[in-house]
Nucleic acid binder design. Structure first.
Lengths: 255, 255
DNA sequence: GGAGAAACGTGAACACCGTTAGCGGATTAC
DNA sequence: GTAATCCGCTAACGGTGTTCACGTTTCTCC
């Protein structure tokens, strides 16, 4: 407990002393191997001893880099959020900048594609929370990375609102409790303060939940009894979702 | 491999020889203790050795009852599906028989309530599939129990269709692939053949996915940054869902 | 340049885990 | 009563996370 060296991880700053450099290189190697084991055998197949073995080290040595196996997995989570975010950004960037519709569809499809191509990783990010959610929201690097990922989509929805794409329901029946929650969410995610009424936030959340539902079902392999290839069903859902947002649906580009 | 005694589990037939009776009692005890450990420490906290210790046995003895830890967990899955189904049935039965709206709302709320009260159990049932989905659909008792659970809701949606509650979209744009999937699903779940067009099945699946999404998000403790109590948001979603089905929304009965 | 501090990696150990093999005792079937 | 069956045990193999104490390397600072 009194021996841990600091766990600084500036991630993209390999500068500093030589020691810092090799330290970060080792840390990266650990995470890379862990990622491979995650891909191959699922989250429960990631073990410190196996990683150490593969590195020509012994397990206790890894404790110089991560305080526990759980910490390693959380660090992996953060990296995976970044990776998924990059995939989404790339898909979005492949669409012309002013084409909000195209960008949104591409971004959502990118999440699904990444999840299908990386099932165990997706499960680690969006499956049942292994550890209870971080008490202090920003203390955990994973939670921070998750929020950064979410902000990508918040920004897209912000564009929809700014463009006045969908008519925000008045929420005449919204309970005060719900309104308070929605407002809290809006301020927390940096939703554009002016136009983001509680109604707009609810539309956003509703869409996100719906999207989460279908992607999780497919990645977690429920609904396997429907079919092995759920692309058609996903696209049908996406169409509905887009319709509710005033977004012009467009089938995926072949290839 | 050649030594396993048969794994007959008629479940509700403690009849037969005395031996059979004590065998099933032991089997039940194993599952009960496993369930307690699942509740307390999550799925990864269920261990044969700990169960055996608590029973005053040794771990290898348990292999007379379950072929592996995975088998135990699958048996638990089946039991949990039954338990969840019973909770849903009870909630439904508390509503007057002809009140389709009330019964559907009660059933859906019961699923959420059970999931929140039994997070690890819910995660085991609806979280990422630990083992790849059973190749032969009916071989696994867990898959069988899952389908029985699903049939409860299929029956309810069937009532909605029979009562002509919602206008089935014509699905003019449905791809042949999608239609094939939907038809397969309909016949597999015993959807009432006559009126269950592909469109109706799609509405059902869409609702289920949406419902799955919000309940999973809440149970898995994502969206924790929105609020700790998502009941208001859940009810808002439920209202939307009901509206799309021609079901009259009704706030939950206090108490 | 040399002394002291900090970080690093190791070996041993503790307490677990799933699973298999082989054995003796109890129970059942004939 | 004998033979077959089932049951639970011990022992063992190989795996896991984690802690502790120790020697070695590396850096820092004077």
């Amino acid at each position: 407990m009194t021996r841990q060296p600091a766990f600084h991880q500036v991630e993209n700053a390999p500068s500093g002393s030589r020691r810092e450099r090799v330290r970060q290189a080792t840390s990266r190697e650990i995470k890379e191997i862990a990622r491979r084991h995650l891909t191959a055998h699922g989250a429960s197949g990631v073990s410190l001893r196996a990683i150490a073995r593969e590195m020509g080290m012994t397990a206790p040595g890894l404790y110089r880099y991560f305080a526990s196996l759980n910490d390693l997995l959380e660090a992996l989570q953060a990296e995976l959020f970044a990776e998924l975010g990059a995939a989404v950004d790339a898909a979005e960037a492949a669409q012309p900048e002013p084409d909000t519709d195209g960008r949104l569809l591409a971004a959502l499809r990118a999440v699904r594609a990444w999840g299908l191509a990386n099932r165990p990783e997706f499960a680690l990010l969006f499956g049942p929370a292994g550890t209870p959610p971080a008490s202090s929201p920003e203390e955990s690097p994973a939670a921070e990375a998750g929020q950064r990922f979410a902000s990508t989509f918040v920004a897209l929805f912000d564009r929809l609102i700014a463009e006045g794409r969908f008519t925000v329901p008045d929420e005449p029946e919204a309970s005060p409790a719900l309104c308070a929650q929605l407002d809290a969410f809006a301020s927390l995610t940096g939703f554009s303060g002016d136009r983001a009424s509680a109604g707009a936030v609810r539309v956003l959340l509703s869409c996100w939940v719906r999207f989460y539902g279908i992607v999780c079902m497919e990645v977690f392999q429920h609904l396997g009894f429907v079919s092995d290839d759920m692309e058609a069903l996903f696209e049908a859902e996406l169409r509905d979702l887009a319709a509710g947002l005033g977004v012009a649906y467009r089938p995926p580009e072949a290839g």
